[in-house]
């Protein structure tokens, strides 16, 4: 035995516990107490109802392309710090490509045949923008 530690808890251990507690409370105040709307704009890509990838747009340095293959179709999605759009797709309807560029929280691009949904979440919410669009 190189050295055996003390085997009974003592007052100094309480100090470690207190330190961890302080850290926990401090972290809690920082992440929970702050303004909830400070999350960055995030693209949530879901395929067949499962979230395949989440990308914080602010973490991108420039446009990035993602190739999504699902249900026999291949989609080319472009993510950039400002916006997201479907560049090309081999689905029959092309609705996703026609949707164009999305850049605000709550907007989404959908490809029904491939069952792919790209949705923007978080970020600064535009108070005057509609919450839902019927269409």
């Amino acid at each position: 035995m190189k050295s055996s530690p003390k085997l009974r808890p003592c007052g100094w251990d309480a100090l470690v516990v207190l330190l961890v507690l302080l850290l926990a409370v401090g972290c809690g105040a920082a992440v929970w107490g702050g303004n909830e709307a400070t999350h960055d704009l995030t693209a949530v890509i879901s395929v067949d109802g499962e979230t395949a990838e989440t990308v914080a747009l602010s973490s991108l340095s420039g446009p990035e392309e993602r190739t999504l293959t699902a249900n026999g179709y291949t989609l080319h999605l472009v993510l950039s710090p400002e916006e997201v759009y479907m560049e090309a797709a081999d689905c029959p309807t092309q609705d996703c490509v026609h949707t164009g560029h999305i850049s605000r929280s709550g907007q989404s691009i959908v490809c029904l045949p491939a069952r792919v949904i790209v949705r923007l979440e978080g970020g600064q919410k535009d108070e005057s923008a509609p919450d839902v669009v019927i269409g």
């Binding site: 003390k6 100094w12 470690v16």
Partner: peptide
């Protein structure tokens, strides 16, 4: 680091 502090028991080190 914590194990260098001889005053701490194995509990403190573990929790840390």
């Amino acid at each position: 680091g914590l194990s260098r502090l001889r005053k701490l028991s194995v509990y403190g080190v573990s929790v840390g």
